[in-house]
Design a protein around this nucleic acid. Structure first.
Lengths: 139, 139
DNA sequence: ATGCACCCTGTAGCAACTACAGGGTCAAGG
DNA sequence: CCTTGACCCTGTAGTTGCTACAGGGTGCAT
């Protein structure tokens, strides 16, 4: 178990299932610290970068915004701090997800209603178009 | 029932619960035709604009993209055409909504799991942070 | 030495708006 | 008549989270 050699940006991308451009973008917006450079000006990443990027990706998969992840990272770095703030962010995010879920559920119902009524005749009496048209005003 | 006087952009915005800037943007991207202008260069809208904008807004509320609405509007204008294409767009959209719904449902489950385990101690043993950290690598 | 895969910076684009800045217009009140 | 304030105009830049070039340089194998 010798300590691993540094990774290029392509290696890191492959290891985290991230695009190279996305990694550079994370660096620009200061989610990921700028790594050292090789003689030829290539970025060289170590295991700490790998850990941090994995954290970011997992957070994004869970739907946290970049700003929320920035906060979570700052807290994770300050290990003695209370976990209550972390909990607050996570709960706020869950509430938002649940709101979106409710909206989409309602939406799917409405769409299914509208689609179910379509007899696929001509547009002139299409129920879908009618459902979109202003209430009580055909033509 | 005399025919209504033309509306200003502000009137139209109020009538459709839309922002003034959004209406101008719809005009720029050719969702809404450019209306006539007053002597003082104000936009003047008639009932046809009101109908069309209501259609657009309802479509947006149902989650159709601007491009989809453009297609739907083109079809709605061509009243003899078959309604099958309209049905296709609506079904494709419903399928997309259902996919998003499934994703969000999974997400909400994961978030609830993670949050449920948080004892709100210090960050050092926060389960939320841990859940985000790379598999099998504390520190 | 020449190809090829990879890396670099910087900029522009996507969706669907939103938010100004820096002006012009119009009706009412003093 | 003049001012005040609410409205309107155009044009540009910002938002979120990337993605896609263009126009170059690097590194390794043949």
């Amino acid at each position: 178990m010798a300590h691993a050699p540094p990774m290029t940006i392509g290696d890191l991308a492959a290891a985290t299932n991230t695009r190279v451009e996305t990694i550079r973008w994370y660096e620009k917006v200061k989610l990921l610290p700028a790594p050292e450079r090789s003689a030829g000006n290539y970025r060289l990443y170590g295991p700490e970068h790998l850990r941090r990027l994995s954290f970011i990706r997992r957070g994004r998969d869970l739907g946290f915004t970049v700003d929320q992840i920035r906060e979570l990272l700052a807290m994770a770095d300050d290990r003695d701090r209370s976990c209550a703030e972390v909990d607050t962010i996570a709960r706020a995010h869950l509430a938002q997800v649940e709101r979106k879920l409710a909206d989409l559920t309602r939406l799917a119902h409405e769409l299914r209603d509208v689609i179910g009524q379509c007899g696929c005749g001509s547009v002139a009496d299409c129920r879908i178009i009618e459902a979109l048209s202003p209430h009580g005003d055909p033509s």
